[in-house]
Simulated assay, not measured.
Amino acid sequence: MKMMKVMMLIVMMMMVSEGSIIEPTCKETPDFSLCVSLLNSDPRGSSADTSGLALILIDKIKGLATKTLNEINGLYKKRPELKRALDECSRRYKTILNADVPEAIEAISKGVPKFGEDGVIDAGVEASVCQGGFNGRSPLTSLTKSMQKISNVTRAIVRMLL
């Protein structure tokens, strides 16, 4: 067990010495484990700067929004009684994909992180509004909570650029 801890420490030190800023950056977010997991799952993470990490997480927001929108589309057939709430969620997740994500990517890429933060915050708000439309019985709860968590982590990293 002690040897395992030593090995983990060596690996972590090697990562830091190779220039990875994932762990120190993720320590400044509200969910260290989620942050590290998301950034380590992308090959760009190990060599990215803070802006690059933010862009990776914005890509994760985009991927989750796409997945959620696909789930919504499937639910129309399975749960027609939820049409009104699903319509609202569909609009919300299309906003994430068509407005929030592009705004955030453009802002971070152009060095204007404040507008990137706005897009990231809005993604979390859109997910929250979607969730609320089901009056406590949402079939999308795990996806909307994931969007809120990823948005919060991303926002913390974008704020480091301000």
Rank of each mutant, 00 (worst) to 15 (best):
S41F: 01
S41E: 13
I121D: 08
V120I: 12
K77L: 10
L69Y: 04
K110Y: 01
R84A: 15
F115I: 08
K114E: 15
A123D: 10
E106K: 15
R44K: 15
N70W: 00
K78E: 15
E81V: 08
L82M: 05
L82V: 01
L86K: 06
V101Q: 13
I58M: 03
I105C: 00
L55Q: 12
S90I: 04
L82E: 01
S90A: 15
K62V: 02
K78Y: 14
S47M: 09
I105A: 02
L86W: 03
A54R: 03
K67R: 12
K60F: 04
K114F: 09
D87V: 10
D118R: 13
Y76S: 10
S47W: 00
E71K: 07
E117A: 15
T68S: 02
R79K: 14
K62R: 13
K62I: 01
L75Y: 04
S47Y: 00
S46C: 03
L69W: 03
N73Q: 11
K60A: 03
G116C: 06
L69T: 06
L69D: 05
T68Y: 00
N73R: 14
A65Q: 04
I56W: 06
R44D: 13
Y93S: 00
E103V: 02
L69G: 04
S41R: 05
A99N: 12
D100L: 02
D100Q: 03
L86Q: 11
V36L: 01
I96P: 02
L97H: 02
E106L: 12
S41M: 08
L53G: 12
T66P: 03
E117Y: 14
S90R: 14
S90N: 15
E71H: 06
K94N: 12
F115R: 12
D87T: 11
I96N: 08
Y93D: 00
R92I: 00
E71Q: 10
A123T: 08
L38D: 11
S47I: 01
I56L: 12
L55S: 10
A123F: 01
V101G: 12
D59W: 00
T66S: 10
G119Y: 00
D122R: 13
R91K: 12
L86A: 09
K67V: 07
Y93H: 09
E106S: 13
D118P: 03
N70H: 07
G52T: 05
D59K: 05
V101T: 08
E71T: 14
K110Q: 15
S109L: 01
V112D: 14
S51C: 11
E106R: 13
R92E: 09
